[in-house]
């Protein structure tokens, strides 16, 4: 995936266009960001019933996990296949901290994010010198190892049975059970807003640019003084924090933890959200999470055929639209914007 254009030409091209090409000015993005999330915040007015809100909450959780994966996978070009293990670590960290250690749920939620971040730093060590497919193999092995450890320590973790009756979150004296999931909806949305804000600020920063530089032209980026060790560790750590928190929230919301979060089926679904949305966009992964979650609900009647239909659709979309949903939207927008700016 190395760029064939010489670095000098690239610099000249950049100098010729002072506004970074292909980049939305931050003011435009801020307006879109606020508008988009305000619309999401108004959704409970439309959907009053518990079940519809439950679907939205699940979509928010998936959106957090998928968009954070996009940071390491899309921007960083690090094929971290242990991303769902970080989510699982969040689930189990929260469950054990609240259930066994009796920690306050909110502190446990934060602590789960920190633990997932630490785990991401540990898994970065063996992949520092590796590339491409080897990273997939090692991180995949890492995920399986975490699962094996949880399975083998069944005295604490419940093994294949999982854990039940995990303490949920609370909000002052608010009744979390009889509000048709309104409180959980807004907590999930707040987490998604915080995560998306963090990710977008991160990828637009100098650090984010250096990570993309490492992905696109590693030798040149290193020669310009970008440290691959530090940046790679930073990328994975940054992608882990909100993933861990999402895992903790998932455990608090579901009130149970099961080993299924490490399974291939969940990883496949989330990965297809990232790729379906289009990598290196953050927003694409979020949109695809909504689309796929709601689509899966539509097909609830198909029962055993649901995973089969989903698999066929994922293959179909990947074959037909390699740039994903975000790419489709972007090119459509460019056509519209081009017409407005330069009337033919």
């Amino acid at each position: 995936m190395t760029d064939t254009t010489s670095p000098i030409t690239q610099i000249r091209m950049a100098a010729a266009n002072p506004v970074a090409p292909g980049r939305t000015p931050w003011k435009h993005e801020a307006v879109g960001f606020v508008l988009g999330f305000t619309m999401l915040a108004l959704l409970p007015l439309l959907f009053g019933d518990t079940y519809a809100r439950h679907i939205l909450i699940m979509a928010f959780i998936y959106a957090i996990v998928a968009s954070n994966w996009d940071l390491s996978l899309g921007y960083g070009g690090v094929f971290n296949f242990g991303h769902l293990a970080l989510f699982g670590i969040g689930v189990y960290a929260y469950s054990l901290l609240t259930k066994l250690a009796g920690l306050d749920p909110w502190i446990a939620l934060l602590a789960s994010g920190v633990i997932a971040t630490l785990a991401a730093i540990v898994v970065t060590i063996p992949i520092l010198r590796l590339k491409g497919i080897y990273i997939i193999l090692v991180t995949f092995g890492f995920a399986q190892l975490i699962m094996q450890v949880i399975l083998s320590q069944s005295d604490i973790t419940g093994g294949t049975q999982g854990l039940v009756r995990i303490p949920g979150l609370y909000w002052f004296d608010h009744n979390m059970v009889r509000d048709a999931k309104l409180a959980y909806f807004y907590i999930a949305l707040a987490l998604l807003v915080a995560s998306t804000l963090f990710l977008r600020v991160f990828v637009r920063s100098r650090t984010g640019a250096s990570i993309v530089a490492l992905r696109d032209n590693e030798e040149y980026a290193i020669s310009r003084g970008v440290s691959i060790v530090r940046q790679r560790m930073l990328t994975l750590a940054a992608s882990a924090f909100f993933t861990g928190i999402a895992g903790a929230f998932y455990a608090a919301y579901q009130r149970n933890a099961s080993i299924d979060v490490f399974g291939m089926s969940l990883a496949t679904i989330i990965l297809s959200m990232v790729l379906l949305g289009g990598t290196s966009t953050i927003y694409g992964a979020i949109i695809a999470s909504f689309v796929l979650t709601i689509f899966a609900e539509w097909m609830a009647d198909f029962g055993a055929w649901r995973p089969i239909i989903t698999a066929v659709l994922i293959i179909g979309v990947m074959l037909a639209y390699p740039s994903g949903l975000a790419g489709m939207i972007k090119s459509a927008w460019n056509v519209v914007a081009g017409r407005i700016k330069r009337p033919a």
Binding site: M1, L73, F79, M264, L271, I315
Partner: peptide, 16 residues
Amino acid sequence: NIVLVVVITTLAAGSL
């Protein structure tokens, strides 16, 4: 990005 896309298509085919 064939390596990554094939991972997802073969995973999906496996699930199928």
